[in-house]
Design a binder for these strands. Structure first.
Lengths: 161, 161
DNA sequence: AGAATTAAGGACAAGCATATCGGTTTTTTA
DNA sequence: TAAAAAACCGATATGCTTGTCCTTAATTCT
């Protein structure tokens, strides 16, 4: 797989957080429940991401987590980097920690290209895009009010993108 | 990473095996020594690949392992499939085991494209290509006789590709 | 036939990722 | 001020991957 399960959980949590009104906090337990993620495990991950500055956290009642950066400006890459680190992608598939001149590796060049492609994918995919794609699918299935963000308002001020 | 360490070891062993004369066997311990792989661990992997038909094995003195398929016809994908299985690539990055209609995932479409790209890479890269690339690098470094395959002959019938 | 050598295969150990549990601190609300 | 609620934090459990060890079976060579 491209990234760990922890990173996957983090991404799913971020997608969820992208849909809560700015300024409001969502509880770890609640996110875990809705996204079907082990609660305590997710809490640890979110705490870690709060320490790294991708999330803001608040204790006590009305507390929880909220995005520290706009969904448009958070890429999958930032999350994966914060959770897994990117060292795996710097390692050479041929086994050497790095392709040095005296220890050449037949895979190095082709892997280098593939790796860039993966990194580009992670960097080029923002939480906003993923969240929008998800919302669109749900609307198509009638699981959402249609044409409206999940905020509990009822009138219809269309907003695109 | 794209595949497990076991798969990486297998690929490196295959690259090594591509350079032994056809019909001859190479010992697991010897491959492990030259490729810097834990010997017993590699042996298990090779035995597994022999059971799956990618290698042929022989016991006793003069025994060892040899490729059951021409290097040109073995792709990284076949090896990774035999060692890791490909199920990870069928799984959706959004977390669901499969993107069903009633449980949509915002990542599904973009990941599908990325995944195909990775599979194409693994399928399109043969052991022969990797072995040739490695040999070429070694020649450039003066670690090989230059212009000659590592077979113990001495004349110079150039062969391309 | 016997000794040496190699793969085959089972048991086990170590390390890491994943997951769970309980207590502590901070904050809000009554 | 007390109680409740949430993040925070450490300890522990579990499962999988990686790695080691030892015995057995098959083959070759003397």
């Amino acid at each position: 797989m491209i990234y760990s399960r922890s990173a996957e959980y983090a991404i799913r949590a971020f997608v969820h957080l992208a849909s809560v009104p700015p300024g409001k906090f969502a509880m770890a337990k609640q996110i875990a429940g809705e996204a079907d993620i082990p609660a305590h495990f997710l809490a640890k991950i979110l705490q870690q991401l709060a320490r790294k500055g991708l999330l803001r956290s608040s204790k006590g009642p009305t507390g929880g987590f909220t995005l520290a950066i706009a969904p448009r400006d958070i890429s999958l890459c930032q999350i994966v980097d914060a959770v897994d680190g990117l060292s795996d992608y710097k390692r050479c598939l041929g086994g050497r920690t790095e392709c040095r001149d005296d220890a050449p590796c037949g895979l190095h060049d082709s892997w280098k290209r593939m790796r860039s492609s993966i990194i580009d994918y992670l960097e080029g995919t923002s939480i906003l895009v993923v969240a929008n794609s998800l919302e669109q699918k749900r609307r198509a299935l009638g699981q959402l009010p249609a044409q409206e963000a999940p905020a509990p308002r009822k009138n219809g001020s269309r907003k695109k993108q």
